[in-house]
Nucleic acid binder design. Sequence first.
DNA 1: ACTTGGTAGACTGTCTACCAAGTGCCATGA
DNA 2: TCATGGCACTTGGTAGACAGTCTACCAAGT
Lengths: 253, 253
Amino acid sequence: MTTISAGPGAGAEPAGARHVKRPQPLRESVYEALTEMIIDGTLERGRHLVEVELAGLLGVSRQPVREALQRLNNEGWVDLRPGFGAMVHVPADDEVDQLLAARAALESESARLAARHASKDDVAKLRDLCKVGTTYQEAGDIDGTVRTNGELHSLITQMSGNRFLVDFAAQVDRRVRWYYTPVAPVRGAASWREHNRLVKAISEGDEDKAAQIMREHTEHTRKAYHDLQAATEPGTAAPDADATPRRRRRTTT
Amino acid sequence: MTTISAGPGAGAEPAGARHVKRPQPLRESVYEALTEMIIDGTLERGRHLVEVELAGLLGVSRQPVREALQRLNNEGWVDLRPGFGAMVHVPADDEVDQLLAARAALESESARLAARHASKDDVAKLRDLCKVGTTYQEAGDIDGTVRTNGELHSLITQMSGNRFLVDFAAQVDRRVRWYYTPVAPVRGAASWREHNRLVKAISEGDEDKAAQIMREHTEHTRKAYHDLQAATEPGTAAPDADATPRRRRRTTT
DNA sequence: ACTTGGTAGACTGTCTACCAAGTGCCATGA
DNA sequence: TCATGGCACTTGGTAGACAGTCTACCAAGT
């Protein structure tokens, strides 16, 4: 059922101030539902999204859908063409590159600040995530690996204590998560070894080292993506970044 | 007159493909009108914004205003309190710090990439902006100085060729421009000397140097802000970041 | 074969009206 | 003085309407 459940709001509250459950605005739920559907491929790239259609699908009126679509547009998930409608964004060839370059800058700085401010508690959590992620990776659970990877990176940016870095990195990470899934199995073990080194640097408060490792980590990911790209379709040099659906990989077997 | 003119859309088209002027969606015009009013102080910090009020003021209906307000909320210009309305965001004490830290990361990376990709044309434009900015600064034209400062930084990020860096940096820069105005006269000459060194490094293609200068540049700005803060109100140590309006500086004399 | 003109359908952008629920404020009362 | 109750206000969401625009398609003319 794709109908929106009156969702119990995301639970990322500060420990002490426990507010009673406040129902999320509908547009928020719609936004989340749509990103989820985009990420998991229910809404394929390039697909024309019609407001009333989505409204019917989710059991709400046009307004919340519009508002969600506009936010998705601002964040680059869909492209809004005036007078026509929204299309699920089709990533250009160089987009992953640029995304990872931006991530490198954001997360490298975050890692530096995280190393500066790291508390014992944080470090413990990081170690835990490393362990969990490695386990998933060894078990071949791709979804789990990618998710844990996201959580680890997210925690590090949060440790930076800089709300702007957190915000931007969160946006970038979700996008990366969208493109990244096929890369995960290739990077696999190496990625989590790097995570371990990174956590070590942070726990030792070594800012420069943490920043450096994070930068290399992202760089390796980019390389892996390119290699995979080259291997999957050799002989595509011309950058025609238009409505060529190419192949669509599904991770949900 | 605050009524929205049927604005002629931003003109950042590629040179060859000259599209006929297409009227912007209303929400876009509303968004721009509101940010402008926030930046120039027409809408003071902490002010309660009511949808119908703004709608009347701008001569449109609630709908475009709502959509604009939500975007402003997402970008941190206003705080949306459900059931009550929007308040113009009141920056917390540490916010400028965080903003400048984020900017340091983003623009330092941009400067690096700009140095890598710089064309002759770009460098010429940079030199021009430096000259203009210095002139403004010497003439004591604060508005002009701040604006040119923004244009210079904006051009550098655009030269990076990374749309995400451009996007994030643009957001940060507008916010900085909002907070920054009081700092401009203090920083003055030194700031533009640094700009000159930066442009030189970029023109020579020295990536590391460009990145380094940009980082220091931002760092100096932050220091200047702190000094000004300390000078203006000595003896404020406790970080109570709530509805204390403190003093409000107006730049529009 | 190619261009032009016309037609039709679909969808967005915007407006209006309306209702329910939540929030802040103020006066009342203990 | 402090809690309570109530009122006015504002948003969040729904529904319906209408103009403008975009796409596609077909037919006629060159």
